[in-house]
Design a binder for these strands. Structure first.
Lengths: 344, 344
DNA sequence: CTGTTAGCGCTTTCAC
DNA sequence: GTGAAAGCGCTAACAG
């Protein structure tokens, strides 16, 4: 039987209200009494019951705000959002409301506005896919000083303390691509690398790690060129097409609009072994059809879920994350990982 | 704002107690009133609040029993248990108690005894790693008729309806091994397959799927022999050693005591490309050192967690699983997936 | 500073 | 059959 505030009230001879004040540092209590209560609670191994707590604080109508910048047609972000929504379901019965605010594109000014809107709507905690800009940095610092914890999701910034930061293990993600090249490459050759916006720190890290690890894992492969890709499918397609024409490499690592990449590969006059990031429906199809060779899956859904979950645990149980950064691992998918099973 | 029993009581002009009787089919209520209440609840979109519910039913002291048969020195089962323990933490605040019962070895008689013990200790729901035997089949059927839901974990039986069955996707797991062989095999050759007890249905399925998929994915590879392995490290080692001496195949798929397999591979006079199942510490080390080539990870922890979780959701929110079988996916791990990152 | 009390949404007596 | 009331463990408002 778990021990309750009532138990420790009886044990210390005070009322349960006093125990509450002591344990939650609410002030208006004799410091000595408070410390005695805390000591007893400690001894008895008291843990606050988060179920009872959240039922009680229900009328505080706690709000978690999620601030995203819209990525249109981006399966990765759709999945991140699916994870957020899943978490929303799970916290619903606890009376915690979740609202998603969408900024437009990579505009820090707009993101700042979203943050301020969230706060003015009474957000008690914020999940943020941050745009790295002084504007945002300052705002985040300010929010946290005001007691509003911020957790970074997917993207991040350096040198700014934040309640938690959850993202995929970008370095690992690059490293795994190197491993896959090691396994897939039948003969020496050049590698072409494509990546979405390097204004996102993680994307840079991923490519760096790929380069570093490739030199170790598979020195007979050399990266011929790294191409930064835009958002739109058409622009993206043209860039890939051009790059492939200029450098007809047999190996390719691709992060970007999947459709564009797949199309360019299919149209290339030379055979290409390719590794794609993220499992969009088109990537899934291409993998299954043997057009691309492997997919590195970065668990976007899990990331979204966890970011909300971490704030939920803070709000309901006061849990402070043990690690300031939580890295979600990546998986390797081959054709056989997703293909229809031959037997049901 | 979520709608509550109070809301629908007001709306229908009855007391909240009556609403409770109607919504939970407790009887002692005018059938017409009951159906009217249910209709209104439906219309208003009422969902029972699982937080409030579990706080209220706390004094019922609900118990989940987990019946395992001890697998000594088996990292896989240790991880399954870790998942169970993780779930235990999460349900603690809901006042649900979890007890683990351990049977000894593959003895159905003993497992039956554990089940009976669990029930006599007041278990309201049971997680079971079943031993396929008429004894157990009958008992499980009987338990469920008595209103005690049973969920199968990791292992399973066919043709017996059960509340839920959670395990890894064994067929997929075999299929992925075929995919890895396809990618790893530089030239045609024979494959040696090792597997733990075929008295577990999943293990048979896994090998079947490997065979079937290999014929499709990589017909130039043929399975030379399938060897069934015992539990103990030494026995296991000897068998692998002997098999490797008799069939010096260049490719190997291995499920069994990792230490034994690794040692045998290291001592083999010919080079071997190998795929191991499960990420024990020794497998991790061997993978990292390049002694083995890939590991197929079957998420044992997730399986354990989910099995408990599914019963928790039933007990607190009345949730009935949508799918009777929940298959946990498997991941491919290469050296680069687990290796120390070159940069921090 | 401290105790008492109402209430979060639901279940469960106990009267009527 | 139905309503009223107590209680699960905790918070918050109000007396004192």
């Amino acid at each position: 039987m778990a021990i309750t505030m009532k138990d420790i009230a009886q044990r210390t001879g005070v009322s349960i209200g006093t125990v509450d004040r002591a344990l939650n540092n609410r002030g208006r209590i004799n410091p000595e009494v408070a410390s005695r209560i805390r000591k007893v609670a400690q001894e008895m191994g008291y843990k606050t019951n988060s179920v009872a707590k959240s039922l009680a604080i229900r009328n505080k109508k706690l709000k978690i705000a999620v601030v995203l910048h819209i990525q249109r047609n981006n399966n990765y972000y759709e999945e991140v959002e699916a994870g957020i929504r899943e978490a929303e379901q799970d916290i619903f019965d606890f009376g915690i409301q979740l609202t998603i605010y969408r900024g437009i594109g990579f505009d820090p000014q707009d993101q700042l506005r979203q943050l301020e809107l969230a706060v003015s709507n009474g957000a008690n905690a914020i999940v943020l896919v941050p745009i790295d800009s002084p504007l945002i940095r300052d705002k985040v610092t300010q929010l946290q000083q005001a007691g509003i914890p911020v957790v970074f999701l997917t993207n991040f910034m350096e040198n700014i303390p934040v309640f938690s930061s959850i993202r995929c293990n970008y370095r690992r993600s690059g490293q795994i691509a190197a491993g896959l090249l090691r396994v897939l490459a039948r003969e020496p050759g050049d590698v072409l690398v494509f990546s979405t916006s390097f204004s996102m720190l993680g994307h840079r890290r991923r490519v760096e790690a790929l380069q570093a690890q490739l030199a170790i894992s598979c020195p007979q492969l050399t990266i011929r060129k790294v191409v930064e890709l835009p958002e739109g499918e058409l622009d993206c397609y043209q860039l890939v097409k051009d790059a492939l024409a200029e450098y007809p490499c047999p190996y390719l690592v691709y992060n970007g609009n999947a459709k564009a990449g797949i199309r360019a590969i299919q149209e290339a006059p030379h055979p290409i072994s390719s590794i794609f990031y993220d499992l969009s429906p088109s990537a899934r199809e291409a993998l299954s059809a043997g057009i691309i060779d492997a997919v590195i899956f970065q668990n976007p859904r899990q990331q979204g879920y966890r970011a909300v979950n971490i704030l939920f645990e803070y709000l309901t149980a006061g849990t402070i994350p043990v690690k300031p950064v939580e890295l979600v691992e990546c998986n390797v998918l081959l054709r056989e990982s997703i293909q229809e099973l031959s037997q049901p």
